[in-house]
Design a protein around this nucleic acid. Sequence first.
DNA 1: TGTACATCAGTGAACGCGCGTTCACTGATGTAC
DNA 2: TGTACATCAGTGAACGCGCGTTCACTGATGTAC
Lengths: 210, 210
Amino acid sequence: MAKPSVRRARLTRDERKLQTRADLLRTARRLFEERGFHGASLEDIADEAGYTKGAVYSNFASKDELFLAVLGEHIERRVRASVEVALEAADFASGTRAVARSAVAESEREPAWAPLVVEFWAHASRREELRRAVLALHERQLDAFTGLIEELARRHDVTFRVAPREVVRGTGALGRGLALERLLEPDAALGDLFEELFVAATLGVTESAR
Amino acid sequence: MAKPSVRRARLTRDERKLQTRADLLRTARRLFEERGFHGASLEDIADEAGYTKGAVYSNFASKDELFLAVLGEHIERRVRASVEVALEAADFASGTRAVARSAVAESEREPAWAPLVVEFWAHASRREELRRAVLALHERQLDAFTGLIEELARRHDVTFRVAPREVVRGTGALGRGLALERLLEPDAALGDLFEELFVAATLGVTESAR
DNA sequence: TGTACATCAGTGAACGCGCGTTCACTGATGTAC
DNA sequence: TGTACATCAGTGAACGCGCGTTCACTGATGTAC
């Protein structure tokens, strides 16, 4: 289904290549989510996108690079979503809560992402160059959230007893850890628990200057 | 190395079988830690333990069952360690802190375990029967820690605003999530952060009756 | 204590399968004149 | 506007490899008498 297009002739070579790349990325994202990084074969991805494996290698250096591209897009999307909701809050606690809720909503909409990312981390941890690339993506994500929470603290006169970046790292880890529980209990409702602990932990390591 | 024994003849059939099983479990545990669940082949495990793959199948129904046995032993060990340190504490906060420190110490001694367990969770999540078996192990672990923290609360007149079991689940998730960060940064020191957030979160969802 | 048969833990080899990557090739698009 | 050659995105098939599981077999231990 969703053949690339009916009238190939209309596109220039460059346009067509971008189209192919986008088709592959979209399909790869879906199959990685459904079957995991190792579980989704390049054959299936190419097939379902309407190409052959060679098309993948014409657009990406390897399966790792393909995943890296998917992951990069995903991170960008997530960061944008959180930034939007956080900065409308009236005080620090409710801003914190808004970020927590946004994260929960995202993770409930795409429950496969946390395990998928961890699977790829484990894979990357045994390949030095790849590990560094994934780490760089992860740090950019941490930086983005750190900037966000610092801005939130500044606006509402709150100071941190623990470095904000560490708080971000910790609460992110909490979210990831809880999301992984769903591997064993797919229907578990973890959102309230996350929100509760996220807020408790964040407020527990901050002081209001008021 | 470590051939099963030089004088095979001294052991009865049952003793020898137990010996073989123990040899395999010990080696499997080590290789799973070093290479991951999928990365450690039965061939290598059998080989390094001094047997052939057939010996594995004579003692375990499958690779999954072998891992399940390793995992079961591991969980039991961890629970025992935490119980011991927690019940000596003078007040609730320091008991909480002692549990956090014990968890950090364990996870630093065996940094490969968190990723390993998650890899197996992901594997099990796609195999219904296995998923249930792993879930049962996990729940027993949660129960044990819940009993521990309830006892701690009882002794020190503390009540929970959030069900203790959920607090255990949440703080466990925090620990697991942080441990996974080490996949990307093997040398990161996460212990202090964990302790800080663990205590903040736990105290944040409790009330002292004093 | 000794002999004859039964049991079964562990062997060794084969089976069956999937997958990432490579590569010579093709045919449509691009370029030069 | 048209022709001849160059480029290169994507094809299709082959390569190379690893791995969990199965199974007929063996030889040491166990059992019956």
